[in-house]
Design a protein around this nucleic acid. Structure first.
Lengths: 348, 348
DNA sequence: TCCTGCTGTGCAAACGTGTGCACGTCAAGG
DNA sequence: CCTTGACGTGCACACGTTTGCACAGCAGGA
């Protein structure tokens, strides 16, 4: 019932550019005539207070524009309620859907997320990690370019979940393309193709190694011939340019490392007068372009979104005590759209 | 020279799931036989210490796996060294390049960035803001869906920079498409087109309002006829579907709200047997798809990246005292590729 | 009347850093 | 030898919050 003025506790000085927070628990407490503890509880443990007190404190806080200082909270509780996710190239359409899922899931669980783009550069990635480490509870590293020792070391300072990277003793969620690849090869076989190409991605990428291996295995099992075409960086232009080499061979179908490459191949084929799918069949991977190619792309639908939210769950499990490294694989399947058709070469 | 064991200061207990940081300044200080202040200075103000001390402390810190607690640092200094950027839809290719630029520039300046995806939803955006506010120095709101009062209020609790949204008294960087649009209209006129379409984006988007107005003005000035086609959500499918209406008219060219729509239009035209650019000319906007369409898209190259880094600079200026709201516009220009050609209708 | 238990609130001690101030040491100049 | 100043380091407080504990008030049972 104190009538005292809610004057600020005589700030020392406000040097033009005051940094961040301004009104604190103390200011609200003064204005409401209660202790700082009560203000704190009005937000964090309201059930301990009388409803009237809670209401009064909250309304005064709102009027004063009070917003809790997360740094102080984190310092006291030891919990940051932040995670960081690092990707090699946010412009690659595989990542936005992943990021979105990570963001959604983390948000539901009350976590905020830092974003880091390493630009496919290990040094830059290391820099990002050190910048984040002091204020996050854990990391999600998607398609990291870091070497194994660094990853292991990192996973010891903070809980870490890898996406599409296989390092023993570190938690990970892997998008298992092998089933989808197998379905794709079977599909092509059913259409009468006998000689097909795999348009490879970056060799240091776990995803490429896995897809490459799966394609080899599937072709071996089903009796098709496979030719691997190296492409380097997975880009539209690379796919476009690869067409020249492709069309110089009797190959009738290609499975691309990702949809972006497949998209480039479609454009390159058309430019050279080949019609898809009548004269050449194309299969993508990741399903990032959905129907926005012409014709709509037959592709292997991975679960970028599932991987993202699973990674968050796994990470937060680790954060809250689960010390065991976990591993999860997300299945994929073939989605047949309009870039595959019977082989143009008539089998005798 | 103390021989004492670098034993941890008897942690009370480590309840299975210990939250975050572990080894602190104190541990390092104990192991190095110096005070906590010295350890602190070894990192933040090394020039105050003897080189040998710095070296010794740092190496011990590294061995112990010390990593500074950012929350404590932020609490003490009053600076978070974090900013937050909120976008309506990270899957829209306009944003990754913007995000990347924001990230790069912020990183150069020693800031880490929180990412928020509002899913075009104002309520969700509000939630994100409150989650971030307590631990960032400022906000970048790109294409925000928030209403004006909320934005103004928000900009009072933390420095805020808007991208492509015009609210008086709040700092903003606007991508000024009008010059690019004007160039595009001029270009189409030079090619002999007389009746063109503007394929509109979401009406509540500042960018669409601006482009729409600019298209009207340019056509008026240059004596072309303009027809505005409403599309709703800017998506590939919307562009694809719009083709039906387009081809039922004598229109010979279209300027799309963005590249994604333009891409859909290209696919739709081809599907209906029209060849681009011989029978129909298409101009995109934003230059997000670069050359990855077929044919390569003539488009208005905005500066998403420039806007991102400019926004960071502007925000950090505001953070360090600049209280004046600023406004900056980024010019655009037409990039002619291969989707525009002379009008197919022969002018008498 | 006294004891017990419950409810609502305040007190004060941390959390891990940064930093103003003071102090001790040492070299140079008188 | 004393003074002076520069240099390197330690002491101790503050930042804003959470939280264990204490305590006051009150009601109900003995």
């Amino acid at each position: 019932m104190s009538q005292q003025d809610p004057s600020r506790p005589s700030k020392t000085r406000v040097p033009s550019g005051r940094p961040a927070t301004d009104v604190t628990l103390g200011h609200v407490a003064g204005a409401a005539g209660v202790s700082r503890a009560t203000v704190s509880r009005a937000f964090s443990r309201p059930e301990l207070l009388s409803p009237e007190t809670v209401e009064r404190v909250r309304s005064i806080a709102a009027r004063l524009g009070y917003v809790g200082n997360e740094a102080a909270r984190a310092l006291k509780t030891g919990r940051f309620r932040n995670i960081a996710v690092v990707v090699p190239d946010i412009a690659n359409p595989f990542f936005p859907s992943l990021l979105r899922a990570v963001q959604d899931r983390a948000g539901q669980l009350g976590y905020a997320v830092f974003l880091g783009d390493s630009d496919e550069n290990a040094d830059r990635e290391r820099t990002l990690l050190t910048r984040f480490t002091g204020q996050v509870e854990g990391f999600i590293l998607a398609g990291t370019r870091l070497d194994k020792p660094t990853i292991v070391e990192q996973s010891r300072v903070r809980p870490t979940v890898l996406i599409n990277r296989d390092v023993a003793s570190v938690s990970q969620v892997l998008i298992d393309s092998s089933r989808g690849i197998h379905e794709a090869v079977q599909h092509l076989k059913d259409l009468g193709h006998e000689l097909i190409a795999y348009l490879a991605g970056p060799t240091d990428s776990w995803a490429d190694q896995q897809r490459r291996t799966a394609a080899r295995a599937a072709c071996l099992r089903l009796g098709l011939q496979l030719r691997v075409v190296e492409l380097g960086r997975p880009a539209f232009q690379a796919g476009y340019d690869a067409v020249e080499a492709l069309t110089a061979t009797p190959i009738t179908a290609a499975i691309a490392f990702d949809d972006v490459i497949a998209h480039g191949v479609l454009a390159g084929l058309r430019r050279r007068g080949y019609s898809v799918p009548e004269q050449f069949s194309v299969v993508g991977c990741d399903d990032t372009l959905a129907i926005s190619t012409d014709p709509p792309l037959t592709t292997i639908s991975g679960g970028a979104a599932e991987a993202g939210s699973a990674a968050v769950d796994m990470l937060l499990h680790a954060v809250s005590g689960g010390s065991q490294a976990r591993r999860m694989t997300i299945p994929t399947h073939l989605v047949v759209r309009a870039t595959t058709a019977p082989s143009p070469v008539t089998v005798p």
